[in-house]
Write a protein that binds this DNA or RNA. Structure first.
Lengths: 200, 200, 200, 200
DNA sequence: AATGAATGAGCCTTCATTCAT
DNA sequence: GATGAATGAAGGCTCATTCAT
């Protein structure tokens, strides 16, 4: 199901060191020398494996995106009602961010950098197929009247928007409570936003 | 109420040229020479007026934030019910982004840069007083049972989160529809998320 | 007659320092830091004025080529017979190399580098007009039978070839005698190679 | 007579790939990785066989020089008059360049690099003995008055200079005609330059 | 206030060479 | 003999900032 993507020990170390640096100082402010120090891999080797700094950013981004969507699809497989499905999306999102805050920070911050770089065709393909699978999961519930009929582009924002906003502030250290404290509040709110109120 | 802040013709031109560059290539990738070209103001003059590159970023950010909160407070003054208030917040947010897409892009992208730079005390003060006024406006409605009692940190995400998510995607050019098309959907959804369902 | 080409003091110094370095170590082995040292101009300024290393090479080359062809055209203006004309070309060539050995070394060695770089359109134009003027000078003597009728491409090699070969070896320090010692031998030999033996 | 110099298949391939690269991009701009690609031999193997990049250049140069002087000496063995000898030198030179244009380009361009590198003692010895044999061949004709008595250093330039000049331009692609088209013109011109006009 | 030439520290990247397998 | 991952010194070039005019 997943593209075979065994990363060598060396590549793994480089990515891990790079993520630490990118989160701490930002991609632009991170020097290759910083990654060298953080990873213990020589400058020459870093270039041998990735070619340039941008390619490291892209590799990291892909890895983060895949992690999240795999987790989400697995969780969704166990849900058996519209309500469960919607709430699963939210819980899963919150759980992933809680468990992988650095990946999350990185993905939020550099999404546009990567997506505009023209280096991320794999990512595009991945996004499209993930979106298609989500659509297939939810379509029946919309057609049968459990979920409000809304423009397709709107569901993502209604379901994920609130927790995403809170997550961003939590990741920035601007909230008093933990993101996970409001897991059920956001799951519930998401369901309220999209459930069908006319038909019972 | 607002600090007197008449910007000279030259400063205006510099900021305007800088915003264009920052949006197009990002703050880090924008050179002083680029701003010189975009604004028509000489390098020496840019330094004469702003001192360094960071100060331009901060000035631009403050200007954007002020624009939005002023607009929001004015609109809120005319609202006369919990529902109107909540919907006004959303409509105002959508309208401001629709009318100032470049400012919006800039603010979203560089919020953390500015807020971590330690150069934006003015901004902190401004944010605090704005938040206080919002709290005063809504408190009565919460106490009287029109709005659900929720942790204070959660309201922002429930009300703004969905439209913010859509706005971000719209600003990136990833949506088919315009942000303004869903103005009422998001206003309504925000109200659904926070209105009190038990009473009344 | 000459393109206005006042080089600033700074540019002059950079070119002069660069020539010294290029002759001593070769263009590739010359570091910008070497030119900085030799010229006393800062690295930043070197780039401010020339943009990159190649542009320095090209500027130097143009300057050398112009020096030689100007000298040659002036000398030719005083010649008043086919024999004098041919001998003038050779003497002038030998004199110029004798007086400007560094320029000569540079021009011989980096001609192809410059001409293949695509950066030397000015040089192309200059070469063409110089060649046209030479052709106009000699044509009458060919038509009137003082000079052998030969394929046009051949004259250059017959007239300049021998002294050029010796000059190259002299510049490399491989000859016992000075180039100028054989000035008249090469002038005479050139005339022997192209004078018409049939007529007279 | 010739040093035994059977090159292994692998060495041959490396040299051949290297020559292609050196001609196309120049020695300095050619990377070991380029030679690897052009030859199909691994980086490690290239070092195993040659030790470093300079040694490849020198090996290539020696090989080119030897090819030419061997050919010349063989041809000269069949000549039986001063005129035939001089013309043979020129024809042989033109033929060799026509048949080995890449070797010729390489030898012209990197002669000084190799000869100044201190790595080419073999080459020095070879050049000296070749020059001695030429001298022995021509001396009698000079003494007997068939060839002008000139400073010894001058003969090379008078005989080879013209065709060399044309050859250089032909190799650079700057001529309309082929070098071989003027084979007899240059052979004849060389003889005109050195034959004794007084006697006979 | 305005200008733009001058400065030089600093960074990304390259590439010859080594060496373990 | 063959391979290619690993190394790190070195260099071209950039760019924020200064300053004389």
């Amino acid at each position: 199901m997943m593209m075979e993507m065994e990363l060598s020990e060396t590549k793994q170390r480089i990515l891990s060191g790079a993520l630490t640096c990118f989160i701490e100082h930002g991609v632009e402010a991170t020097r290759i020398a910083d990654i060298r120090r953080a990873s213990g891999i020589s400058v020459g080797s870093i270039y041998h494996h990735f070619g340039n700094k941008d390619a490291i950013v892209v590799a990291l981004f892909l890895s983060g995106m895949r992690g999240h969507s795999e987790m989400q699809e697995q969780a969704l497989a166990d849900a058996s009602s519209a309500e469960e499905g919607v709430k699963t999306i939210v819980r899963c999102y919150i759980d992933w961010i809680t468990d992988n805050p650095d990946w999350a920070r990185f993905v939020f911050r550099y999404r546009s950098l990567v997506e505009n770089s023209g280096l991320a065709e794999q990512n595009e393909a991945h996004k499209r197929s993930h979106f298609r699978r989500l659509k297939e999961w939810f379509s029946p519930y919309v057609n049968e009247g459990y979920i409000r009929k809304l423009p397709i582009e709107v569901y993502h924002s209604l379901i994920i928007g609130p927790s995403q906003d809170f997550a961003l502030r939590w990741l920035r250290g601007e909230t008093r409570s933990a993101l996970s404290d409001y897991r059920e509040i956001y799951a519930e709110a998401a369901w309220l936003s999209v459930k069908c109120t006319e038909k019972r």
